[in-house]
Design a binder for these strands. Sequence first.
RNA 1: CGGGGUGUGGCGUAGCUUGGUAACGCGCAUGGUUUGGGACCAUGAGAUCGGUGGUUCAAAUCCACUCGCCCCGACCA
Length: 571
Amino acid sequence: MYLSKIFAPRLRETPQDADTLSGQLMLRAGLVRKSASGIYTYLTLGLRAKQRIEDIVREEMNSHGAQEILMPLLMPAEPWQATGRWELYGDEMFKLTDRKGRPFCLGPTHEELVTATVGSERHSYKELPLNLYHITNKYRDEIRPRFGLIRSREFTMKDAYSFDRDETGLEATYQRMFEAYNNIFRRVGLTFRPIQADSGAIGGNSSHEFTVEADNGECSYAACDSCGYAANVELSRARPACDPDPVCGARPLPDLVATPGVHSIEQVTACFAVPPWAVLKSLLYIADGKPWLVVLRGDDEINEVKLLKAVQARECRMATDEEVSTALGVHPGSVGPVGVAVSRIVDESVRDDAAYIVGSGRDGFHTRNVFLGRDFTSTVTADIRTVHAGDICPVCGHSLHTATGIEVGHTFKLGTKYSVPLHANYVDEDGSEKPYVMGCYGIGIGRTLAAVIEQHHDEKGIIWPMSVAPFHVIVIPLNKGEDTIWHAACSLYDSLEEAGIDVVLDDRDESAGIKFNDADLLGFPIQVVIGNSFLKTGNFEVALRADKKEKVLVSAQAACESIIRLIQTAP
RNA sequence: CGGGGUGUGGCGUAGCUUGGUAACGCGCAUGGUUUGGGACCAUGAGAUCGGUGGUUCAAAUCCACUCGCCCCGACCA
């Protein structure tokens, strides 16, 4: 294509309301335009890059046992009501009614619809496994869309759903998908990490997130460089690195100490000159309306996802100051676990052989030499802390680091969570009907595109990996007015086109600086410059966007062939 | 939903405090000179200042309401 004809309006200045590098570059390079908060139009170049990713996804899905279908975006409420997610999704779901008043939604995902569709037939076990996917838009009315295409309200997703006879079959299908995902993200040029994840609202009992390390990612995880263990912080079961010394022999009795004005953990550690892990913090939580006293080490923070799981509740919040006073008779800064009437949930890192300092339950006092088991007991003991950097890897014992990433893919084992309520059964060997054992596998296409740009850019602009580049090569004639140069450029452009190469010709009558800067901004992997030196030597300059120093001079005759070779041998 | 911002030619902004009928840069159009890292000259088109209502002789400017967008938080793949 001729550059002057491509609808890719560039922005010279960095758009102010773009909050990520990828978002800024997509706007600046004319890949996308925003039409509303969290809703984007893909322009020519953005669409082409998106389609490259989709093509790679299709190839890998197809070759790993999945088949493509296409489900509607607009779907009736019934299956959603059957699984309870019509209410569960709440305001995040775009809901609407048709002219007869029948409720519909714009699909935020498609578990219900596939399950209902597959379940409406009675398949034999002989036909399993079945793995269906589609690539289509999803709609979620996010509370706060942000980070460009990374968190938007309309987004393109590849979602696959597998139907197996049993857990063994699901495990095999899951492994195939896991392999496909690794191939996909490798081929689009991402460095990524599959991590163990919480399965969130989708449900199920085992899952992995594929994350791309990025500063503005929204997914926090803990990873071990030594053994490769990696898990979402919501889930990670690492242990703290430091522990209080166990008390051997006689245990000192609790000792009430006046601590006027001392409330925070920081103040307590300063007042007693002890490390924070020798102090316990006690927080009153309300989980599904029931109060729980949460007991953690002073240096830990609660992880509400773990808490919900541990007390089997759907929602929780911290109690207000008033609720604390009513339930425990003290102000929040002096709450302690000893002698309280409410249930206690104690983090498993709290030892029963160490002396802790705790709030005394009386304003202005703390108690030291408090032992778990002797002075207070736990109603529930569970892992409810948030993992920090430096914690001990639960697999190999080395130190963990934490990072944030963009979640580009997610795989779940769903089990029968959807097949049972939707009565999606197959006929087994013995003639009985059994629910499908399902899996679900998503890839955010737009997010993946954004992640590619996050990982492949420099101060000048995008540096497309060959596999995702909207065009592979840009031919840049400098001084278009010079006929020899212009004709040579056109002739190279024509032969590349004929060879099936996606090539752009910068046909604009612009100065060299503008052409170079635009070529860098748009990020096509190969740049061919035809300038005054061509008049003298008959050579084109072929350079890689990724590494301008690797500039090679190629004769006009050999250029086409060597460019094709460069494209074919690209990583 | 709470807190904080913001809205002025296509884009980025100034003007608002102290009301007097819209300015600058980029881009765009035409002609000319240019052409190896964001050239120059000349000419020109383009905004009833987010919307509605109010105050006033007079509103981009003051007041009220409203809508959009952005940031922080809660929430979430």
